[in-house]
Design a protein around this nucleic acid. Structure first.
Lengths: 157, 157
DNA sequence: GCTAATCTTGACATAAAAGTAAAGATTTGC
DNA sequence: GCAAATCTTTACTTTTATGTCAAGATTAGC
């Protein structure tokens, strides 16, 4: 179970924008420089995020990117759903075995685990907004563990 | 956030073995046939699982694989840790940007989220054993949702 | 001891994800 | 209206994950 590069860097770029003051924006080279990725790569990520309606892009001199909605209203669950190509809803369709369709269709003991894990992850991410990720690691970590307090989340098997 | 093919099929193969009676075993072609993957592919997975001590392999005619421990004592968290190459502990080291090391070292608002998610997933998986995954999807799903009952797991931010 | 069945291992091939490049489109400011 | 700055889009390259192959090693049974 892992986070893809697209998910991680896409989210990082959004956090950059969330940290801006009202009216401010960042260009691709600025975003790329702060994240240690190439401007071309940042461009691809921002294109995705723009299509999905998370950011607003302005072209031309004085152009750049800014958030399309207040950072406190953008939940990580929405962002990840875009950046991971809606994995939670398409997993069982992207079968790679040697048969025509998944041999487990109809009676699959693993599916509830996979679906359940995604639900748990989505649920946890739905409780975090971009606004909460602005700031230093120490602050973010402190807040994260407060939320995690209600631990003991389970996957129904 | 997604489950890799190695994680999914490795886990499936283990569930096959967990469903066996005492003294029974399965050969690579048998395991492969039931999962809809090639015998070569199954061989690689079982090799990993054997190295990690989850299964016992017997060579030669009448050979095959069986679980090395009772299925009720093998937790999914241990299995996934092997199959995903210990992602939870190595994520920040496998940096792929253009700099020498992660630009976020020392002050990274995203890290608590990534680490926290992995913790939540591991925690949920630690409450499921192979024994619980044996049976039909309906039964497994019912049990899964019972565990998930204590919902509202959070990632501390 | 020979043969057939089976696991083991490393090298190789294929497919998917990640990242790069280049040409096009839009806007600002002169 | 021209030039510079910027985003957009598609095609391509590289890297990583996945899957295959073939030769080797081990065991059972004859």
């Amino acid at each position: 179970m892992k986070i893809s590069a697209q998910e991680e860097y896409g989210l990082r770029c959004l956090v950059q924008l969330a940290a801006l003051g009202k009216g401010e924006s960042l260009t691709l080279p600025q975003i790329a420089g702060r994240e240690g990725i190439s401007a071309a790569n940042a461009g691809k990520l921002m294109w995705l995020l723009n299509k999905a309606g998370f950011v607003q892009a302005i072209r031309g001199t004085k152009g750049g990117y800014s958030l399309a909605r207040p950072p406190g209203e953008i939940h990580l669950s929405e962002v990840i759903k875009i950046l991971d190509a809606d994995e939670i809803n398409t997993h069982c369709e992207s079968y790679t075995g040697i048969l025509d369709s998944c041999v487990h269709n109809g009676d699959c003991g693993i599916r509830p685990v996979i679906v359940g894990l995604h639900e748990i992850v989505q649920d946890a991410l739905s409780q975090i907004t971009l606004a909460q990720l602005v700031g230093t690691e120490a602050k973010v970590d402190e807040r994260f563990h407060r939320i995690q307090g209600l631990k003991n989340r389970h996957v129904s098997v």
